[in-house]
Simulated assay, not measured.
Amino acid sequence: MEISTLCIHGSTDSSDTTGSITVPIYQTATFVHPAVGQSTGYDYSRVQNPTREQVEKIIAKLEKGVDALAFSSGMAAIAAMMELFEPGDHIIASEDLYGGSIRLFNNLSRKNGITFDYINMSKTEDIVRVIKPETKAVFIETPSNPMMQVTDIAEVAKITKDRGLLLIVDNTFLTPYFQLPLRLGADIVIHSGTKYLSGHNDTLAGFLVVNSEELSQRLRYIYKTTGACLSPFDSWLIIRGLKTLAVRMEKQQENATRLATWLSNHSRVTKVYYPGLVSHPDYEISKKQARGFGAMISFEVDSEETARKILERVKIALYAESLGGVESLITYPMLQTHADVPKEEREAKGIHERLLRMSVGIEDINDIIEDLAQALLS
């Protein structure tokens, strides 16, 4: 079954007897036992719920994984995953990460005795250089947020498998529609389901997808113990959103490609970060490991004044955090997604007052371009 069909028909609700086309919302906290020592397969919704089970099955199939676990947010998924590690463990992570991941690692995970090295993952030889006896995992975003660095997943997988390390890949930007990290050697895939998987900016969700039963069992134990599970209604919203994932991703990528080209030729834009541009340093890696380039663009403008004017003048593109919905959103990373990263560290990565990040939606591309054109006027 092709992925666009899987998005629509990836799961069958065997517990429903009505013939409903849509998966019902099982809005219940607990389930009746048929008899002592017997179970319907559902006991308590923190452990499993029929609606959540369906979205987990679909995500696992889309990512070609053994199991998927649905959480109340992307950060809840990452926080639960970090419970796999113990005090003294060491993790190598992308230097360019979503600010929420950095906040979790540098404050909560370090408090719990886990140490980190942040490196540019596009230089895979640097990974070997920082591996220690206590290293347990490599954590990457590709493309990264917000600088759009691309990591060669298969090359990193060779390093991690040779040394018995976990390879964890945040696949939020490309989704399984464009990229399949487990097929390239990853052990765990992360999603902020809030973004493209939902696609409508109307719910929070997170997913972990694993490549083995052993990881599934360990994470499901953590899952039921910590309890940040996805609610039945939010599970239903993700199922609904997934039905249009393929058509949304194609349209958003088409729009992003045209917009990135237009931005590259604008006099007030000094640099464009989009993996789909031939000028991007990781363009060939992207072509090798992904079916597409996605719809996330970061770009630098000529001054802080220009950046702030854009944010205040846009009418179709909305000045808001998040990404991946049908609406185009424009974000100021230094004040929003990466506000908690120390200034010197942030600016060293290129996240400064002239950098904007845009999630390109499904509006008519001519309207998006005209909107940015008027916002960029002197």
Rank of each mutant, 00 (worst) to 15 (best):
I351Y: 11
R346S: 12
R313C: 12
S286E: 03
V23F: 01
E321M: 15
I114G: 04
M147R: 15
E53S: 13
A228T: 13
E134C: 10
S231I: 13
S101Y: 10
G361P: 08
H266C: 07
N145C: 10
T51A: 11
I369L: 06
T337S: 14
I78K: 15
M148T: 11
T51D: 02
I310S: 08
A77G: 12
V156I: 13
M148F: 01
K64E: 04
S328M: 02
D43N: 01
Q336G: 12
P176M: 09
D234C: 11
Q54L: 12
M334C: 14
V36W: 08
A295P: 03
K136H: 06
E321T: 15
P143N: 06
V326I: 15
T175E: 04
N171I: 13
N201L: 14
T194F: 00
A290R: 11
G65A: 11
A295L: 07
Q252M: 13
T22N: 10
E321V: 15
D43T: 10
R46K: 13
Y273I: 05
G276C: 07
G361K: 02
E95L: 12
S264V: 03
G325P: 00
E53C: 07
D234Y: 07
D187M: 03
F233S: 15
T203G: 09
D364Y: 07
Y44A: 08
K343Q: 04
